[in-house]
């Protein structure tokens, strides 16, 4: 069986303690949460950290609550809890859409939202979900906390705004009235990473789309935030033609690579189709018309 290289291990008992450990141990230290991205890389010896700081005891980072007009999700909240949260499903149903198709139920028992976002794999679903939902994230270091938008969070492929001695501690989703959202994914098989996936959110205002969020997974080096399509939608009445136009923009604005999941043209096609589908469903939900 594949086995990781040797490392030293410590368990954090507080967020600040974890940050202090990271500062002390330097660049060869990594935080381990659910471990379902990091450990497979370590077994393949693609990641060889010298120190692991285990933050699984930080149960204070496991929560989904409504506070100050936001849904706030602790970084250690596991996929299974995101899937089951009625509060989250009520305000942001795209989380439940995504969580039914992220990996498999057993993996979802371990993997965390913080781990998923910090891995920053462009094929990962939650990054697109959070971008579409206009989330921001709270990053804490020894110097204190800062709040970063998803656009600011995604620095590059597998790279985020979280510094070497920082920890992502919370995801914040602003709750606005008359919203609806949906996530659509095409995968080769249940549990696989996306060939392409699209997250969409709309907030209705007087019969038109007041604001929209659209983001794509697996069709670029990072999560693709389709701002041009969001602009198109703002202030317009929802219609299939409008969504088709938004889908066309999504197809154009993504930059997929050809791989075992499919060629570029297929992925562009999917970006368009899934954007349309997600928008249609998001709008139906916002209007309480979902079939």
């Amino acid at each position: 069986m594949q086995t990781p290289a040797a490392f030293e291990y410590e368990r954090a008992t507080s967020v600040d303690g974890a940050i202090a450990s990271l500062e002390r141990l330097g660049s060869e230290a990594r935080v381990i949460a659910g471990g379902h991205s990091l450990l497979p890389m370590m077994k393949l010896r693609l990641a060889n950290p010298e120190h692991l700081v285990d933050i699984n005891d930080l149960t204070e980072l496991s929560y989904i609550r409504e506070q100050e007009g936001e849904i706030r999700i602790g970084a250690m909240t596991r996929h299974v809890d995101l899937l089951r949260s009625d509060l989250l499903a009520q305000h942001f149903p795209l989380f439940r859409d995504a969580e039914t198709v992220i990996a498999d139920p057993v993996v979802r028992n371990r993997g965390t939202i913080g781990g998923s976002l910090c891995q920053a794999d462009a094929a990962e679903d939650l990054s697109a979900v959070c971008a579409a939902a206009k989330a921001s994230v709270v990053i804490r270091g020894s110097g204190g906390e800062r709040v970063v938008s998803m656009d600011g969070f995604h620095v590059g492929p597998f790279t985020t705004a979280v510094g070497a001695a920082e920890i992502l501690i919370e995801v914040r989703l602003p709750v606005r009235p008359d919203g609806g959202s949906a996530h659509e994914k095409v995968e080769r098989r249940a549990g696989d990473w996306a060939i392409a996936a699209a997250s969409a959110a709309v907030w209705m205002q007087d019969g038109t789309i007041g604001d929209a969020g659209i983001a794509l997974s697996a069709v670029g080096l990072t999560t693709i935030h389709v701002t041009r399509a969001e602009e198109l939608l703002r202030g317009k009445a929802p219609s299939d033609e409008l969504f088709a136009e938004a889908g066309a923009i999504a197809s154009e604005d993504c930059s997929p690579a050809s791989d075992g999941r499919g060629p570029i043209d297929y992925k562009r096609h999917l970006a368009g189709v899934l954007t349309q589908r997600a928008l249609r469903r998001a709008t139906a939900r916002a209007l309480h018309q979902e079939a």
Partner: peptide, 28 residues
Amino acid sequence: DTSNCGACVVRIDGQPVKSCTILAAMCD
């Protein structure tokens, strides 16, 4: 090796998890 097959599932605190993708130390 890659947490895809489920042959290694055990329960930790009642929840099924893939024991090939968790360190024993994490179960202390």
